[in-house]
């Protein structure tokens, strides 16, 4: 077995809402292996973004974090801000959902790409700028030299997301976290950006944690998939297993929401929605929406061991 790059153990994230601590992420565990793409999927509001941000402890102070995130033998969650600054952008990088607002409007593209190089590699600004040029080539932005002097508002959404990727890749990180990097882009650009990320992963041998709610994206790029529901990790499996043998009722329902070419067209939305974090049910959090829920579901099940892990009382009959 390969040793994981990062191990997340029993991660929980709580926010204080009306004087009560509410667990938005409810003790989840997973590994990030070298040179893989791990996709985290789930509906809106199930805790994907806050999970991603906690991987580099980027959440606001109002969030209470529990559990352990081991990276290079150290626990990220107990690191001081100074140590974290040394890791952020250099060994773990992150790109965000909104390319339109994630770049600083008053700084040039060149400066924004060069910044992590100056901060982490001790480069001079002019060296870093030269390297920024190469990075723009890497993310396939034409007229790199000219782009360096431009401001974000002069670029299209797809270009901006490429710039974000260039910033993320600047210091050759070991892990790149991409939080819905293509949601804000139109379909053709989406495909280009995903292909670019995949190429770069292969070339540079980094690991990508890809957050998405789009199973099409998962099918395209994932090696392994982690399915989240309402702050729980309900199923994790290699991508092929997940699509051929989904075991958790939520995963099964989720798969039924995507149209598939090889099946008679039958699109089934999941009834109801993810509850807000202050109204999470006791026991299995999916039970209220689950068509197969029974008495046992009043107690939360554990995640089963093994590469294809499921968190459901009914799993024995299934796997």
């Amino acid at each position: 077995m390969t040793t994981p790059l990062m191990t997340v153990e029993d991660l929980s994230i709580s926010f204080k809402i009306e004087d009560r601590w509410c667990r938005a992420v409810n003790g989840i565990s997973f590994d990030i292996l070298p040179n893989e793409t791990l996709c985290i999927v789930g509906e809106s509001g199930c805790g994907k973004s806050i999970t991603a941000m906690s991987l580099m402890k980027l959440l606001p102070d109002t969030a209470q974090l529990g559990g352990k995130i081991t990276f290079d033998g150290q626990d990220i969650l107990s690191m001081k801000e100074k140590e974290l600054e040394g890791i952020r952008g250099s060994r773990i990088a992150m790109i965000f959902q909104e390319p339109m607002t994630s770049l600083n409007p008053v700084l040039t593209v060149g400066e924004q790409i060069a910044e992590p190089l100056v901060l982490h590699k001790g480069m001079t600004w002019s060296d870093a700028r030269r390297e920024a040029r190469n990075l723009l080539d890497l993310v396939r932005i034409p007229d790199a030299e000219q782009r360096l002097g431009q401001y974000p508002h002069e670029l299209s959404g797809g270009m901006r997301q490429r710039v974000m990727i260039a910033i993320g890749l600047a210091c050759r990180p070991e892990i790149l976290i991409a939080d819905e990097p293509t949601t804000a882009l139109d379909v053709t650009i989406q495909a280009q950006v995903l292909a670019l990320l995949d190429d770069i992963r292969k070339e540079q041998g980094l690991s990508i944690v890809m957050i998405t709610h789009d199973l099409g994206v998962v099918a395209n790029v994932a090696d392994r998939v982690a399915v989240m529901y309402a702050g729980d990790l309900v199923e994790t499996a290699p991508v092929a297993d997940l699509f051929t043998a989904p075991s958790h009722p939520y995963t099964q329902a989720l798969l039924k929401t995507v149209p598939r070419a090889d099946e008679a067209f039958e699109l089934l939305p999941i009834e109801g929605q993810v509850p807000p974090i202050q109204l999470m049910p006791e026991g299995c959090r999916f039970a209220p929406r689950c068509l197969e829920a029974h008495d046992a579901c009043e107690v939360a099940p554990e995640l089963s061991p093994g590469p294809h892990a499921v968190r459901c009382w009914a799993r024995e009959e299934r796997v």
Binding site: T101, S102, E115, P116, H120
Partner: peptide, 26 residues
Amino acid sequence: GEDYIRTARAKGAPGRRLILHHALRN
């Protein structure tokens, strides 16, 4: 509260630079 401040934090920009460069300019 803007997204680009979060980006700057994710780059590892230290607090002072975050405030005096990224935020103040805006």
